[in-house]
């Protein structure tokens, strides 16, 4: 009973912009710091320390940027679907900012995954482009992103744009498993997924550990990215309220503080 009440309280607070802004102050710093640390470690580890594949040689290292980009691109789309669901059901307007932040990042990462896949494929399998299952799935994902992007561009009204893109991303997310399965049916000859969180990877630890670091780094980067955009949107929407006024005027000049997120802690 008490837990239920607590949860309910939490849920209501989540709708409060001020509370959201305050609680995410530390999160955004955490994600940003972790992303920097993990990505620097990951880049150096993957490029200079991880062993080369005995068959593919050093082109294998491209996997360390290709796989995280593809994973995050797909997760961001699903994230958009979840945000869309929350936005539609509970009429939470903040979720549209999450969609607006996930959309360009996810779109660019999908394109990046396709590009690095081609750059990896050329020296390894002798061709820039293979019409295999995962290439097709990723290309379809790109078009799912492009569709929402085009839709958003076409609707001038912010509220309707939010609802339309929430609906479309939700429908797309429901369809992703069907699309993935049918594409796998279409071509069962592609390489099996080299890394997943549920299965034990077949790679030796010295190869998949840097991959894990990279994947975590990419996800922290996305967390930082999306949260920063949401926080800015909260400030913009609430700019006429007192707490924003106090926060913005008491803060040091932005250009004088390199780490903006640490200085705006819980004012007002």
């Amino acid at each position: 009973m008490k837990l239920k009440q607590k949860l309910k309280e939490y849920w209501h607070k989540l709708g409060s912009p001020r509370w959201f802004y305050q609680i995410t102050t530390n999160w955004v710093t955490f994600f940003g710091g972790s992303a920097l640390l993990l990505l620097v470690t990951g880049f150096v580890w993957a490029l200079a320390f991880a062993p080369a594949d005995y068959q593919q040689g050093n082109s294998f290292r491209i996997m360390y940027v290709h796989v995280p980009a593809a994973m995050l691109a797909q997760s961001l789309y699903i994230g958009m679907g979840v945000a869309g669901f929350i936005g539609l059901v509970w009429r939470m307007k903040l979720t549209d900012v999450a969609i607006a932040a996930c959309l360009p990042l996810g779109m660019v990462l999908t394109a990046l995954a396709l590009f690095t896949g081609g750059v990896w494929g050329k020296p390894t399998w002798g061709s820039w482009w293979e019409w295999d299952g995962r290439t097709v799935s990723t290309l379809v994902l790109l078009f799912l992103y492009v569709g929402i992007y085009a839709l958003r561009e076409a609707i001038p009204d912010a509220d309707l744009r939010a609802r339309a893109s929430a609906l479309v991303s939700l429908v797309g997310t429901v369809n992703i498993p069907i699309i993935k399965y049918s594409v796998e049916w279409w071509n069962t000859l592609h390489q099996s997924a080299s890394f997943s969180l549920t299965e034990k990877p077949a790679m030796p630890a010295e190869m998949w550990l840097p991959l894990l670091v990279m994947v975590l780094g990419f996800y922290c980067f996305a967390g930082h990215h999306v949260l920063s955009r949401m926080r800015l949107e909260v400030l913009t929407r609430e700019s006429s309220s007192r707490w924003v006024a106090e926060l913005m005027l008491n803060k040091n000049a932005v250009d004088g503080t390199p780490q903006t997120s640490t200085t705006d802690h819980g004012k007002g």
């Binding site: 379809v140 078009f143 799912l144 492009v146 569709g147 929402i148 085009a150 839709l151 076409a154 479309v168 429908v171 797309g172 369809n175 069907i178 699309i179 399965y181 049918s182 594409v183 049916w185 279409w186």
Partner: peptide, 21 residues
């Protein structure tokens, strides 16, 4: 028109795959 195509054609893909098969 073009937005409709962009939104809908990716969703048509599974039908195309099993249909042609």
């Amino acid at each position: 028109g073009i937005i409709l195509a962009l939104l809908v054609l990716p969703l048509f893909l599974p039908v195309l795959i099993f249909g042609t098969d």
